[in-house]
Design a protein around this nucleic acid. Structure first.
Lengths: 233, 233
DNA sequence: TGCGCGTTATTTGCATACAGACTAGGCAGG
DNA sequence: CCTGCCTAGTCTGTATGCAAATAACGCGCA
């Protein structure tokens, strides 16, 4: 069984470039403020400048990259309270989404959510790096699916920005086993609320879910990113 | 005196193409579902395919255009309740923005808002098409300035999408003199609330402002777009 | 008449070339 | 030593060419 709302990974060069550059930024290999040049990137990634340009354009719209003056392109600077802001915004958008989803979700949507959830459950004992990768991307898929289930193309477009940015936070806060357990409980309850067609219930859980994440982040980092402190205990 | 948050209109070809195509869609000259080809657009706009491609890429991200299969590009289909959804989303984002703005806005931000407001006041007696154009774009600038004053790059990125989409609604609902008067009153009150550093007050007015807009739209159109019914009485 | 298939014509994706705009670095003058 | 200008080098914006993928069309067949 597959997850229908997910884009089948038909990766053209532009998409590849986008994913690659974004990942470099999210993992911190490309540092804040670092200068990007299309030529160097096209060399590094082994493709021409055209797909690089398109990828960078997208990253600029999403706020990961910024132009400075006419001819310099830099990795965007993320302010101290970035994480809190992101969670605040996500809370706005996703609570609304899940309310709509509770009214409009189809059986397929719910099945997809269940599937993702089961997948995350299986990966729960977090050990290796790969499992962590799968968990975070599954988590992202979960939230994306909910937004998609809200059946509002505008919300979906919005989430392209907001959720991607949410991943910035990923580097800041790694799941602890206990946090992960709670996240999964939240997810399960959200699914239940959607199935029950209970918008307010769903929204409340989502709100808690994201506030818990925000709090975890702010505590972990004390407002500052503490490099290398992967709390995957 | 200038409005600093506005981008100086240095229009390269890509930007021109983006503006042009978007306008065609917003005004309905390009109908929903109509097929777009890069070649035709580049001919029409008198430039090469490259800037057209970038413009289309942006419009896809924003949800104005969609790809269908591998090789067809169409003007996106806007669902019936588009307008309501857009206002709902804007309400989420802008109420939050104005709350932050009430805390963080600088004197320059407030001056900019005042300036835009005065400009709109001067244009108030709505007569010709040009004045209407100025009003709507000033209105957009007003809302953008508030979001910018919230000092959250993420919100700004989000608004790029949300506000643009809000403009789709523009075609649906034209201001009546009375609506315009009320809008201006709201704007004035919002400025006052920001100056008073009263986040909740500001948010409440913003909420009313956008709900009034949404209501106007849904009544005007009865849920359906009524072409040519410009109520600029 | 309706359906399926093969061929032609479009259309996009990517690569490359070139010109203009900007940045950086050094040199001269104060 | 600092400041301003000039020059060389770099980077982006745009145009154009080519190949692969797809869509459109028409024909044969049931």
């Amino acid at each position: 069984m597959q997850t229908p709302p997910q884009t089948p990974p038909r990766m053209n060069a532009t998409e590849q470039a986008y994913q690659a550059i974004r990942k470099e930024i999210l993992t911190g290999r490309l540092e804040e403020g670092e200068r990007l040049t299309e030529t160097r990137l096209s060399d590094d990634l082994g493709m021409s400048r055209t797909p690089i340009r398109e990828a960078i354009g997208r990253l600029i719209l999403e706020g990961f990259v910024e132009r400075q003056g006419g001819y310099t392109t830099r990795v965007a600077h993320f302010p101290e309270d970035e994480a809190e802001q992101v969670y605040e915004i996500r809370r706005l958008v996703e609570c609304y989404s899940v309310q709509r989803a509770a009214k409009l979700a189809t059986e397929e949507d719910i099945a997809a959510l269940r599937e993702i959830h089961a997948q995350m459950r299986r990966d729960t004992p977090p050990g290796d790096e790969a499992a962590y990768e799968r968990l975070t991307s599954a988590n992202e898929a979960f939230h994306r699916t909910i937004v998609a289930a809200a059946r509002s193309p505008r919300l979906t477009a919005l989430m392209t920005t907001a959720l991607d940015v949410g991943m910035v936070v990923r580097t800041y806060s790694m799941f602890s086993a206990r946090d992960l357990e709670r996240s999964l409980a939240h997810h399960a309850e959200i699914i239940e609320a959607i199935e029950a067609r209970a918008p307010d219930w769903a929204a409340s859980v989502m709100s808690a879910h994201l506030l818990a994440g925000a709090w975890r982040v702010s505590v972990r980092s004390g407002g500052r990113r503490t490099e290398g402190e992967k709390a995957d205990d």
